[in-house]
Structure formats: C-alpha cells, structure tokens
Simulated scan of single mutants.
Amino acid sequence: ADVEPTFHPIGDLANVVRADAADAGRSLPIDEALKDAASTRGRSFRVPSILGEGGDC
C-alpha cells in the first residue's frame, strides 16, 4: 500500500507497430527471390535444421 506507481516510458501508447502490408515497389517476385537459393521447397527457401537430429526440412 505504501509503494508508489512505477514509471512507464511508453505512456499511453498502445500499438506502435505499423500494419503489415506488402510494398509492391520494394518486393521481388518469388521466382526472382528464389533463383539463386541453394535449395527450395515450393515457394519457400529450404534451410538446414538447427534443432538437431530428426528435424530435417
């Protein structure tokens, strides 16, 4: 009961993150982005597992 409230540097801000929207002017077509990849699966880059045995992608 005798403790003062703590300071919060953000104040009343609730959401400071912008909307997640694609910017067509800065985006590569998928085939262009994947053309030099060592390995792909469908429309994604394929990378080695870092989680150990049995996590082969």
Rank of each mutant, 00 (worst) to 15 (best):
D12Q: 09
R18G: 14
C57W: 08
S27C: 07
N15P: 09
D31C: 02
P48I: 03
A22C: 13
P48N: 01
D20M: 12
G55Y: 14
G54Q: 00
V16C: 08
A24P: 03
F7Q: 11
G42W: 03
S44C: 11
I10V: 07
F7H: 11
G42C: 01
E32D: 10
G25D: 00
G54D: 00
D23A: 06
I30T: 15
D12E: 14
V3D: 10
C57R: 08
A22D: 14
R18F: 12
R41M: 07
P29W: 02
K35L: 06
A38S: 06
G54Y: 01
A1F: 15
V17C: 09
L34A: 01
P29K: 05
A14R: 13
H8K: 02
P5E: 01
P48W: 01
H8A: 04
A22L: 15
E32G: 04
R43W: 15
A19Q: 14
K35R: 13
A14V: 14
A33P: 02
F45E: 10
P5F: 00
E53L: 01
V17P: 04
L28I: 00
A24M: 04
F45K: 07
D56A: 10
I50L: 08
F7E: 13
R46N: 04
D31R: 05
R26F: 05
R43V: 15
S44A: 11
T40H: 02
C57I: 00
G25R: 03
R41F: 08
S27K: 04
P48K: 05
A1G: 15
D20K: 10
P9A: 01
I10G: 02
S27L: 05
D56Q: 09
P48F: 05
F45A: 09
V3A: 09
I10A: 06
L13A: 14
N15G: 09
S27I: 04
A24T: 08
I30W: 08
S39G: 02
I30C: 15
T6I: 01
D31L: 00
D12S: 09
V16G: 11
E53V: 02
T40P: 02
V47P: 01
I30V: 15
A38H: 12
R26W: 09
A19C: 13
G52I: 00
S44Q: 13
A22V: 14
D56S: 09
G55I: 05
N15F: 09
A22K: 11
I10Y: 05
A22Q: 11
L13F: 12
P29Q: 07
R26C: 09
R43G: 12
F45N: 09
E32H: 04
K35S: 11
A33D: 05
R26V: 02
G54E: 03
A1E: 15
A1M: 15
D31T: 06
R18V: 12
D2N: 14
D2M: 07
A38G: 13
R43D: 15
R26I: 00
G52A: 00
G52R: 06
D2R: 10
G54F: 02
G11S: 05
P5A: 02
S44M: 13
D23W: 07
N15S: 11
L13S: 07
D36A: 10
S39W: 12
V17M: 13
D31E: 15
R46C: 02
A22W: 13
L28F: 10
G55H: 13
F45G: 03
F45D: 10
A19S: 15
A19I: 14
A37Y: 10
